[in-house]
Design a protein around this nucleic acid. Structure first.
Lengths: 227, 227
DNA sequence: CAACAAAAAACGGACATCCGTCCTTTTTCT
DNA sequence: AGAAAAAGGACGGATGTCCGTTTTTTGTTG
């Protein structure tokens, strides 16, 4: 599988995401007509991610967001109760999508080696397809209130756990070397994150998504494969 | 070399750092007596890093900094011209120290294999000794004005270049496998950064600095060493 | 050592600005 | 026309910075 195929398979459309947000936040959204909500949520999300790829969420004012989204300040407050809620909403949604797609993709294969490969590719391709979202999620997580930070941390560990399980399965089956699984998974996660955190670097070097994914897989294989 | 030895060798004292800051910013520092300047710069740096390990530099107000440092708002403005200048000053200084220590440590050995090992250890140990500073540097770099962001990017590439040179030297000497050097260095950098970006994770797992450093070295060896 | 004046440093009130949010008014949709 | 949605003025609070005032330090003289 290469990136262009992945994009079609996953197809994380903005309507879908907005729909999911609507479902989970009906209570705090004051607008009744679903079509209107989805339409404007897309505007809000697009504008937020766009602004926050240039400056931080904190220094984005509601007035900035209003100008970029085309909605008035008053209208914005029909879609979230306050600025912090908007942040929480976006981060929560982002995490859910990552986990959903990752577990779904892994379930399509059976051997640990294949699982590892598809998990790596899915993560990188996903972060490529949603780069502003991933960047936003990583960078802004620390500006959350304490209890929401816990969710972000749990989510990091959850994703890591996916890799831990795959590698342990491989070791148990005798196809992977018996390495320090937790440290290795943690390291793998760091490498995967680098793709969207240092997007500027890879872009300027013209490193393609496929090249990066293949390289990461090769590294992991050279550490884990026996023989 | 283990971490406890490293700390003694490098000994990045706060006085030294403040002295360096003073040297490079005499023009914008309005206080004459060097002793006073060093004394208060330490207070300012400590307070800033402490606050910014909990919230962002942007959401730290000058009043916050005043309360934490024990200097009045007016006094603070004798040490920097405005809040943004303080940020630039701290980031610039942090980058310089990393580069200085890294190149200095590498120059103590000759073979590429030894150089690689000492470069990895130095980077991890340095980020351990100055964890709040490293974290601050990474996270806050994006809140700089455009021209200062260029410096941050250049610095990232400079550090990466250190690793690129070592690995290329090893390949030329025939002791390292001929891998994709640039991608590999970039990956190594991502792994090194993870140590201070996810400090909470490693701390809760009781992973020691030495264990982490040894693990990273082992990974790199399993990728690069021939045989 | 004490007294004191000048210089240096620190202080904190004041001000203009910006920001999140609320709420009444206006516009759009049904 | 009535309901739903959008608009944007207004307000209280916070923030960066300036600058006149007060406190501390320094150097000098008796």
């Amino acid at each position: 599988m290469v990136y262009n195929e992945f994009k079609k398979i996953v197809n994380i459309s903005k309507e879908d995401i907005s729909g999911q947000i609507l479902e989970q936040n009906r209570a705090s959204i004051k607008v009744k007509k679903e079509k209107k909500v989805i339409e404007n949520l897309i505007k809000i999300i697009d504008a937020t991610l766009d602004i926050c790829s240039k400056k931080s969420f904190q220094s984005m004012s509601i007035r900035d967001l209003s100008a970029a989204s085309g909605l008035s300040r008053g209208a914005l407050y029909s879609y979230f109760t306050n600025k912090e809620e908007l942040l929480i909403l976006l981060l929560t949604q982002g995490r859910q999508i990552v986990y959903q797609v990752l577990t779904e993709q892994i379930s399509t294969v059976t051997s640990p080696h294949e699982k590892l490969k598809i998990a790596i590719k899915s993560h990188i391709y996903l972060s490529e397809a949603m780069d502003t979202w991933f960047y936003f999620n990583y960078i802004e997580a620390r500006n959350l209130p304490k209890n929401e930070q816990k969710n972000a941390i749990e989510s990091e560990l959850e994703t890591e756990k996916i890799f831990i399980d795959i590698i342990e399965e491989g070791i148990a089956e005798g196809v992977f070397k018996d390495e320090n699984v937790v440290l290795l998974s943690s390291t793998l996660k760091a490498i995967l994150q680098d793709w969207y955190l240092k997007r500027w670097k890879y872009r300027s070097r013209k490193t393609s998504v496929d090249e990066y994914a293949d390289f990461v897989i090769k590294i992991m294989e050279s550490i884990l494969l026996i023989g």
